[in-house]
Write a protein that binds this DNA or RNA. Structure first.
Lengths: 188, 188
DNA sequence: CGCGCGATTGAGTAATTTCAAATCTAGTGG
DNA sequence: CCACTAGATTTGAAATTACTCAATCGCGCG
């Protein structure tokens, strides 16, 4: 599990054993059951979560109790309510488990410590943030450009692994269409 | 103009004179006229641009020649086709001037150099990337949650300065609605 | 004045949503 | 093995929203 994190980081920067130990010592492990919350709307957000095993969703509930999915996160992905985490404000998103899930938790204080203490880790997180930024840009373009059918097809090729693990209802609310509309899309 | 950049950076990290000189020496100044392109679809993207003065749009042209606006950028904002810039691939976006515009250009090579040479600059760009990520998340939620009317109202409060400088047509394509629909929204 | 660009308006059309009902499926307990 | 249930998916029909196409309006500027 710590090996797994090390591999994840080393896709971007290489670390010595002692450097990695330093980094790892700032994380804590936690396990959650399906339906449990990692982050709950209205509460302060103490951690960024790196998913070791399992699957979660981060979503916003609007005034009509309708859910809009900000992101999914499975093995190797990072997730939290970043707005609330970085600004130390109360969450507007809920992050909850779609499966039993194990995560590594990183508090904002510890994130800043390891970034300050190890230039390479600051580099790692900069690269991660850039990659995340690009991914969101692609998603915005997809929302602006493409109709429901096209967005669904893109999702299929982009995240085939998720299809197996997530009910269509949730994919619909990730794509910004009603579940009925998604259901009516012609199987390409 | 260099003072302006220094102030911009110092909102996040403080630099000594020599540190700032080091950073500044990796930028080049360029001026563009209204309608000129900073980035053109199909070409490689050499620079990230920091707008000193003026206003540009970054947009994607779909198969029907319809434009979808990824972002605007005015004074103090950064803009380029990040997908192409970071991955050193050909641009899919066009970045062009809505006004005569002066920019500071930063090549990817120079960006990596100053990040490697000055931990504080790597920190600066990490913070910037995080802020950008959060902004895109808000925009995605707005696209998922809100109808045309609500998105327009949000735009008005979020970017009142842009309203004065940008034709409504472009705001429409930023918000993902037709100009006719935008025009029909009741003035709140 | 007349041109050109942007904004508006009208009318018909297409896409999507909503609400309601029916169907399917996997898991549970008898 | 079967009946039952909860959750997920599908289908139908009406209502709504936004789009397209076309025409018109308004205004600044040479």
């Amino acid at each position: 599990m710590s090996t797994q994190l090390r591999l994840h980081i080393q896709k971007i920067v290489s670390l010595t054993d002692s450097e990695f130990d330093f980094v790892l010592s700032h994380f804590t492990v936690r396990k959650f059951k399906k339906h449990q919350f990692l982050v709950q709307e209205g509460n302060y957000v103490n951690n960024d979560f790196w998913v070791v095993k399992g699957l979660v969703k981060a979503c916003y509930s609007d005034m009509d109790r309708k859910e809009h999915i900000m992101q999914f996160a499975m093995e190797d992905w990072w997730v939290t309510d970043y707005q609330a985490y970085f600004n130390q404000t109360k969450a507007t998103l809920n992050v909850s488990c779609l499966e039993d899930t194990e995560v590594l938790c990183l508090s904002l204080e510890n994130r800043e410590k390891i970034c300050a203490g190890l230039h390479k880790i600051e580099h790692f997180f900069r690269k991660k943030a850039n990659a995340g930024y690009m991914a969101l840009q692609r998603r915005i373009l997809s929302l602006l450009n493409n109709n429901a059918q096209e967005r669904y097809e893109q999702f299929l090729v982009q995240y085939p692994a998720l299809l197996q693990r997530i009910p269509k209802t949730l994919i619909a609310s990730y794509l910004g269409v009603s579940r009925e509309t998604l259901s009516r899309l012609s199987p390409s």
